[in-house]
Amino acid sequence: MVGGGEGAFIGAVHRIAARLDDRYELVAGAFSSDAGTSQRSGQALGLDPQRVYADYAAMARQEAARPDGIEAVSIVTPNHLHAPVARAFLEAGIHVICDKPVTTTVEDARMLQALARKQGLLFAVTHNYSAYPMVRQAQQMVREGQLGELRVVQVEYAQDWLAEPLEQDGQKQAAWRTDPAKSGGGAIGDIGTHAWQLADTIVGRPVQALAADLASLVPGRAVDDNVQVLLRYQGGARGMLWASQVAIGHANGLRIRVIGSAGGIDWCQEQPDELLYTPLGEATRILRRGTASAGAAAARLSRIPGGHPEGYLEAFASLYSEIAAHLLARRGGGNAPSDAQFPTIDDGLRAVQFIETVQASARAGGSWITVPH
């Protein structure tokens, strides 16, 4: 792991997720650029001090030279470091698992895409919400045509943790996420990219054009904290994405509604085991994970019987396990199961292209702009 040392949030989440299904062992890390902090973090995790580094580049070189060196690296640093860290490990011949957004610029994302292909290495991006069982259920229903011809996509991600200027008080997570040099964008890059990727996973067709409004509603904030985007999908569906980190009363309100000519579905991350399904002219049905109402796509990511909630950490773990299936297949020279899916560097590039198109539209006063693919 690179990043995720003392005081970090997402590093611990990745470590729990990677271990939950017994598919990974953490053996090395560069947890901080400060040598003391990195060593203390490694000691707390029970690692060999010789495999705890203060320099990610040294870690890549030395681990690649070891007969028992790491197979993959998990990158959980602030966004601006994703590209240089990933490049170092790809060049060393090590598979990469990277937090989102994969980079802060399209140019860096293209560079990593080309390098991963040249090296023949796996590059995964941890959009964990795509691995919830009922998200896979929704994806399956759309693919099978149960909603008919798609008409409307509404996706939102509402939080309130940045409703006050926490960055001015030195709060670590707020400080780097609201620094444009480190984040590459505010709400659109931090949670808007999750909303986009959730819709992308379920809908299965690209956004062709968008018109966006970005706002910094907290006085003095240097990045956007509220985003509203109109979407036009390939095939004619219309959509809207709202991402806000100043939406008081909302903790982690990721929600998506997809409506077609024959029915509609509604999923909310805060009630993840349920998917609402309304066929045209019929009463709304509640499809539940772990029951006969859910299909094969949801069942393969369910660990425990219905009535026992599976949530954020389990979805993250499912994503890591999907990646593990591909890593093990590469180790053995075989093929991973066809239904073991995860976001790749290709998806990571498209996410950064989406972010930059949103920013370009906002700078142009909300003009419609074509999204590159």
Rank of each mutant, 00 (worst) to 15 (best):
T193Q: 02
H194Y: 09
H194S: 10
A195K: 00
Q197C: 03
L198D: 01
L198N: 01
A199T: 14
D200Y: 06
T201I: 01
T201P: 00
I202G: 03
I202P: 02
V203F: 00
R205P: 01
R205W: 04
P206A: 02
V207M: 03
V207Q: 03
Q208E: 11
A209P: 07
A209L: 08
A211K: 09
A212D: 04
L214E: 06
L214V: 13
A215R: 06
L217D: 04
L217R: 06
P219Y: 07
P219W: 09
G220D: 12
R221F: 11
R221E: 10
R221H: 10
A222N: 10
V223T: 12
N226L: 08
V227F: 11
Q228Y: 07
V229T: 10
V229C: 09
L230P: 03
L231Y: 02
R232L: 08
Y233C: 01
Q234T: 10
G235P: 13
G239L: 02
W242Y: 14
S244G: 11
Q245K: 06
V246T: 05
A247G: 05
I248D: 11
I248R: 13
G249N: 09
A251T: 08
L254T: 11
L254K: 08
L254D: 08
I256K: 12
R257P: 05
I259K: 12
G260A: 10
S261F: 07
